[in-house]
Design a protein around this nucleic acid. Structure first.
Lengths: 203, 203
DNA sequence: AGAAAACATGCACAGAGTGCAAGTATGGAA
DNA sequence: TTCCATACTTGCACTCTGTGCATGTTTTCT
């Protein structure tokens, strides 16, 4: 129940990871992603070439957000609701996602930097979309668990895809907007897209 | 109106491209994508290392389908329909896509091979999703032209995303299925997903 | 305290992708 | 037909990404 005491090792690892990320984003912002070499990043972050690839499997991975891991309790609770009308499942799923966003609000500056890079550099975009894709399949698996279907079945895949569409579109609008205040959140944007989605297709 | 006489040069280029693709897919099917080097492909296709990268900017690009280019007349006709209820625009857009599929039916064997590779090799999946993403932005632009909005606005992006979701989901189901007969088409699958989408969110 | 596991690092290497320059084939014009 | 401009192919040399392996160091657990 309580978060396991984070050992020194884990903390260092998290810090190092964040330092590499920050260095990569800073340098990419200055010189452009393709002008930045891994060596420059490792120098800036003060780690070895080899350590960089211990944390990130590619250069792109260092500048894109890893898809969030949803808390197990939430996922279990969702799955326990059991079969229902697809519309209701989709609503529950998006609600779950929104709750997660509310609890772990993404950093706007990092997201903005990542999206800006993705717009200009296809490899970064590819890495980002791959992350979204992996997360979408993960969601499809969760939905399938709830409905007792297989993750490869059409309905779970479609529901997950719709939830991801709302999430992606909303996030995109969020980062495109000028920051209103300091502690703004993508939540209202995603919620608005969900509404738009309903009025678009819904009755 | 009539297709411009295809010069020898263009034909050779198309053939070479196809030969490289075929060689890449064949070798990747045999040894696995990551065990295949560009050199192996060039040897098999009988072109130089440098020529390979003249046709494909990355090794991944050689094994994924380039997003189709929609015929200008169709696109213009679509745009000329002018603003309408989003639901109607989405219906027109998917109809346009289905018509294009019907006219240029994708080769099942190649699609199957590509999807199989994408399932096992993240870089291939990333390249494929990047292609879909580019096509989706292209569609958003078309929708924006029709409605007089900007391609970055939320409604065009969302409509394009929904159309792509239907297309992707349908295609995925299609390739997953065992080939019923020789000349089967992904069309009915995509149509079924569209219906599912309507009953899922619709009235 | 000491063993075991996790981690960082350096080294060497295969392979991807690019700029450049030279050669070859094609389309078009005279 | 002849000749030129252009497009395409190729080889070469090079930078950079990403990986296997061996070694040393730090943390955790008992």
């Amino acid at each position: 129940m309580t978060r396991k005491k984070e050992g020194l090792r884990e903390r260092r690892r998290r810090e190092t990871r964040q330092e590499i990320r920050a260095a990569a984003l800073r340098l990419a912002g200055e010189h452009g992603f393709d002008k930045v070499t891994v060596e420059m990043i490792t120098t800036e972050a003060d780690v070895s070439h080899r350590t960089f690839f211990n944390y990130f499997s590619t250069k792109e991975a260092a500048v894109v957000q890893a898809p969030p891991k949803l808390p197990d309790e939430e996922v279990d609770a969702f799955a326990a609701l059991g079969p229902a009308h697809p519309r209701e499942i989709l609503a529950d799923l998006t609600a779950l996602l929104l709750r997660d966003i509310a609890e772990q609000p993404p950093r706007r500056d990092e997201f903005h930097a990542t999206f800006a890079l993705a717009r200009e550099h296809p490899p970064v975009l590819a890495a980002m979309l791959a992350g979204f894709g992996a997360f979408e399949r993960y969601l499809a698996g969760i939905v399938a668990t709830r409905t007792g279907q297989r993750a490869e079945d059409e309905a779970p895949r479609l529901i997950a895809a719709l939830a991801m569409t709302a999430l992606k579109t909303g996030m995109e609008s969020w980062v495109a907007e000028d920051p209103k205040d300091e502690n703004d959140s993508p939540m209202p944007y995603v919620e608005r897209v969900m509404t738009l989605l309903r009025t678009l297709l819904g009755h």
